[in-house]
């Protein structure tokens, strides 16, 4: 019983991390039709920014609570700035050529991820976190690391915040309308370009935050950190339905749990089941669970 509780909670924490990556990807695709391969690099940079902050404040081996909290902020800001810079500087010239947009994000992702290897060497580094975060709490006999709970709470807060933003604010309205019909929104005289930058920066911020939390979850970081998780985030986005934040949340839970349980019982079944799920969902519902029809 305690194993099942442990697996469920760690699975949900994994789902929370995927959701932080996937929510931005999904919004970006919904609004801009860009499958953003650079998203994994934002995630990696978030993780490295968090690590760097902690090392600057409290050294390489231990972290204070305030250093960790500051690291979360730095990671989020770093992700947002990086994403905004990429959108304004590199993607904007290519809005007439969608295939090249996908390709350029691939190149950007490759270069940005490898840049961390260039600056901080390619080998993995331990991610220091405050004692209370790495400690375990006992839930119905299962000893669960505290960072799992924090990750789940953070993802729930982000989900609530995004739904509020999308449904209650003027910009949220523009983003939703733009995802529905971009030309029409433009025709109404609204500056969609600014919405693009905003959505990209928002996605980057979530990816950066996800990177910091992901670093705490796995306990170490390396330059390939983002691209490994990006594949699963893509799967989450596509299963959930491109452009749907709720869909991403739902799919993240399914994928996180399936992967965690599968990998516990065999070494390979978890990753395999995830891939199979994607194929099955797409063949039954070609637009994902909650995706709009195209």
């Amino acid at each position: 019983m305690s194993t099942i509780i442990l697996l469920t909670l760690t699975g949900l924490a994994l789902a929370a991390m995927y959701f932080l990556l996937a929510a931005g990807l999904s919004l970006i695709f919904g609004l801009m039709d860009v499958l953003n391969f650079a998203h994994g690099a934002f995630f990696t940079w978030g993780a490295y920014a968090a690590w760097w902050t902690i090392v600057q404040i409290s050294g390489e081996f231990r972290a204070t609570t305030s250093a960790f909290l500051l690291a979360l902020v730095v990671a989020t800001v770093a992700g947002a700035l990086l994403a905004a810079a990429v959108e304004v500087g590199l993607l904007r010239p290519l809005y007439q050529r969608p295939i090249y947009q996908v390709l350029i994000t691939l190149g950007i992702g490759l270069a940005l991820s490898q840049l961390t290897a260039v600056i901080w060497r390619p080998d993995a580094r331990t991610f220091p976190q405050p004692r209370w975060l790495a400690d375990t709490s006992t839930v119905f006999g299962a000893r669960v690391p505290n960072n799992r709970f924090l990750l789940i709470l953070a993802a729930l807060a982000v989900l609530a915040g995004m739904l509020l933003f999308l449904r209650k604010t003027r910009y949220g309205l523009i983003v939703r309308a733009g995802a529905e019909n971009r030309e029409m929104v433009q025709a109404l005289g609204i500056d969609v370009d600014r919405a693009f930058t905003l959505v990209f920066a928002l996605g980057g911020a979530l990816a950066g935050l996800g990177g910091a939390f992901g670093a705490a979850y796995f306990g170490s970081i390396d330059p390939q950190f983002g691209s490994v998780n990006l594949i699963f985030a893509f799967i989450v986005v596509v299963i959930g339905g491109l452009g749907s934040v709720t869909g991403s949340a739902l799919a993240a839970v399914v994928i996180g749990l399936a992967q965690q349980f599968g990998n516990y019982y065999t070494t390979w079944a978890g990753d395999f089941v995830v891939v199979l799920l994607l194929a099955v969902v797409l063949l039954i519902r070609p637009n994902g669970l909650l995706g709009r029809l195209r």
Binding site: L35, I235, D271, F272, A279, P286, R294
Partner: peptide
């Protein structure tokens, strides 16, 4: 046959998924 039931980005993702399945089988020494 399976993947061409979808289009565009979805097609790219389905093919990626099948290739990942192959990579898992190879990497985990099934």
């Amino acid at each position: 046959l399976l993947a061409f039931r979808t289009h565009g980005v979805y097609f790219a993702m389905v093919t990626l998924a099948f290739a990942q399945a192959g990579a898992v089988i190879v990497g985990k020494n099934v």
